[in-house]
Design a protein around this nucleic acid. Structure first.
Ligand SMILES: [Mn+2]
Ligand SMILES: [Mn+2]
Ligand SMILES: [Zn+2]
Ligand SMILES: [Zn+2]
Lengths: 146, 146
DNA sequence: TTATTAATTAATAATTGTTATCCAATAATA
DNA sequence: TATTATTGGATAACAATTATTAATTAATAA
């Protein structure tokens, strides 16, 4: 998909969702669409400031949250707000509730035999891998306003 | 392994590493060893304050970092310091450098066919899963002081 | 044991990342 | 056009983390 097509899709998507396509939103989307560095809000802010000198960081945060809510962009992990410590040091996996950030262990040896793509091992030292099963947990499902 | 055995191992481990076994360190370790909630430093602080009213939150942070450095405890993700946005909304995976927090996409359909353990689906709504390949990247390996 | 040095802790300040508030500006709708 | 809803900007507030520094404690060598 070309960048222009992606932008057109974005515009249509916003209209369908009832979100107005403001210059700020367009700028933020454009800043992200071809950026594969998984930038922080701050990074996007810096990229945009030249064209939009008056935009505030809070707008970037709010806009990205709106985008994420509607599936226009995604976040790499929902566990980005605070460190979470684990007494288990052996490789294992986790169920993560994206609403309440509850974390449950998944200890299942069959998940430790994944075929690691070769290119990951080129130059990097692999320490291990861990699977995040992203869920809305039963408690949070009950709380949801349907 | 019993809790007492774990504590004994911890004490021996510290001695081997040349870390002194202080009451604070012991208390922090004990607070974590049987806690499977993947607590935040703040949670551990609250648990400990009754017995150790003078301990400071900064000590908790530093001690946990020391423990993690020596493999006594682990962190659920190293990407806990800030949100990272992604223009890709399709399921995919990531290489994460635990030193510099660089994130590289891993798009490999063969990794999207993992057998999800049944119990994860009980009550929870599964949104998807994503694998974090934790590495020390080539750049960071060069920087390391060996 | 005591003196010396190194390591650890506590208190606190500073910084960073994020969210809330409030008002003005803009856009959508009647 | 008038009305209402949405959005954005400025700023303050808050939460998480890190840095600084001095006091305390522990380790080690006379
Ligand atoms: Mn765990
Ligand atoms: Mn990605
Ligand atoms: Zn939940
Ligand atoms: Zn790196």
């Amino acid at each position: 998909m070309t960048t222009q097509t992606a932008i057109d899709n974005f515009v249509n998507r916003c209209r369908t969702l009832g979100l107005s396509v403001t210059p700020q939103r367009l700028a933020i989307f454009k800043a992200l669409i071809d950026d594969h560095s998984h930038p922080r809000p701050e990074d996007i802010y810096k990229k945009i400031k030249a064209e939009h000198p008056t935009i505030s960081l809070a707008t970037i945060y709010k806009t990205l949250e709106t985008f994420e809510k509607h599936g226009i962009v995604s976040v790499v992990t929902h566990l980005h707000n605070t460190v979470r410590y684990d007494p288990i040091t052996e490789p294992h996996h986790h169920v993560v509730c994206v609403k309440c950030n509850k974390i449950i262990d998944v200890i299942d040896p069959s998940l430790n035999t994944i075929k690691v793509p070769e290119h990951i091992l080129q130059g990097n030292e692999l320490l291990g891998y861990s699977i995040h099963f992203n869920v809305i947990c039963s408690e949070c499902r009950l709380k949801e306003t349907n």
